[in-house]
C-alpha cells in the first residue's frame, strides 16, 4: 500500500504521485477527433480521460421538443433556453470501465445529473446563445477513465469541442480543482489538480473561470473545509485555471495552424476561431 497524502506530504512536500503542491498533471488534448461531429475534442488530465462531441446548433423544432421532454427521461440537462437563446443540452455517459471497480451507472444517477446541470449552466453563460434562438446545442460527453478532477476535465473538453464547432463564446471557460492537505499537520499547503486518491482523502473544490480572467463560473465544494483556508484554495485554483487556459489555447492554436497548412482555411480568413489567437 503506497503512502497517503497526509502522511507523505509533511515528510518531503511531495504528493502521492510525486508532484509538488503547485504542479498540474500532464494535460493532453486534441481537437476534432471525430470528423463526423460538428465539433469534438478529447482531453486527458493525468489519467482522467474524457471525450466530447457537439451537435448543433440545430434549429429543428421537433427535435428540440423531443429533447426537452427527453431531458426528464434520459437525464440530459438543458440550460440557457428561453429568452430566445439556444439551449445547451449536456449528456454525460460514464463508462462502466472507467473506474477501478466496474460499476454500471444508470441514467438516473444523481451525481451524473448534477454534473450535467452544472456544465450546461456554466456553458450557457459563456456561449453567445442569443445568436441561435430556438435551437439546441447538444453536447455528448463520454468518460473513458476516471482519476479525479472529473468535472474540471469535462468542462475543459466541452470548451474545446465547442470551439471546434465554431460556436461563439466570450472566452474559453476553463476549470481546475484545488485541495488542502490535512489541517492537522504543520504543512497544510493547498494542492492543485487532485487525483482520485487525493480527492478521497482531502477537502477539495472545483473552480471554473472564464478565460484567464478572475470571473468565476463554477465553484463546487462538497467537502467540509475550514472557512479560513478557503481563500487559499480558491486563489490557487484560479491560478491553475490560468495555466489550463494557456494549454487549451495552445491546443486550439495548433489546430488552427494545422488547418491553414491543410488549406482548409485561407490564412488570414476571418474565421471566428482564428480571430484573436496571438500566442
Amino acid at each position: 500500500m503506497p503512502l497517503d497524502t497526509s502522511s507523505a506530504y509533511p515528510l518531503a512536500l511531495l504528493r502521492v504521485d510525486g508532484r509538488r503542491w503547485n504542479d498540474l498533471r500532464r494535460l493532453h488534448a486534441a481537437v476534432r477527433t471525430q470528423a463526423a461531429a460538428d465539433g469534438s475534442a478529447y482531453l486527458e488530465m493525468g489519467n482522467t480521460k474524457v471525450m466530447c462531441t457537439v451537435t448543433g446548433p440545430s434549429e429543428e423544432n421537433k427535435r428540440r421538443t423531443a429533447a426537452s421532454t427527453a431531458t426528464g427521461n434520459t437525464g440530459g440537462a438543458g440550460g440557457g433556453a428561453g429568452a430566445g437563446g439556444a439551449e445547451v443540452a449536456v449528456e454525460i455517459v460514464v463508462g462502466g470501465f472507467s473506474s477501478v471497480d466496474r460499476k454500471r451507472r444508470g441514467r438516473g444517477d444523481k451525481r451524473i445529473h448534477e454534473l450535467q446541470t452544472t456544465l450546461s449552466k456554466a456553458l450557457a453563460a459563456a456561449l453567445h446563445t442569443h445568436l441561435y434562438p430556438r435551437s439546441t446545442i447538444a453536447l455528448s460527453l463520454h468518460v473513458l477513465s476516471q482519476d479525479g478532477s472529473l468535472l474540471a476535465a469535462l468542462l475543459n473538453a466541452s470548451t474545446l469541442a465547442l470551439v471546434d464547432a465554431g460556436i461563439p463564446m466570450s472566452d474559453l471557460p476553463v476549470a481546475c480543482t484545488a485541495g488542502l492537505t490535512s489541517a492537522a499537520s504543520a504543512a497544510d499547503d493547498p494542492l492543485v489538480d487532485l487525483n482520485a486518491q487525493e480527492e478521497q482523502e482531502l477537502p477539495f473544490l472545483t473552480l471554473a473561470t472564464l478565460g484567464d480572467t478572475d470571473r468565476v463560473m463554477v465553484l463546487v465544494l462538497e467537502t467540509r473545509v475550514q472557512a479560513a483556508r478557503l481563500k487559499d484554495m480558491v486563489d490557487l485554483a484560479a491560478d491553475a485555471c490560468k495555466s489550463v487556459h494557456k494549454s487549451l489555447r495552445e491546443v486550439v492554436r495548433r489546430r488552427g495552424e494545422h488547418m491553414v497548412e491543410e488549406g482548409a482555411v485561407e490564412k488570414g480568413a476571418s474565421m471566428a476561431m482564428d480571430m484573436d489567437i496571438d500566442v
Partner: peptide, 10 residues
Amino acid sequence: MTSLRRPRDA
C-alpha cells in the same frame, strides 16, 4: 502564487 504547468518535454 503560481501553479506550474508541466512543460511538454517533461
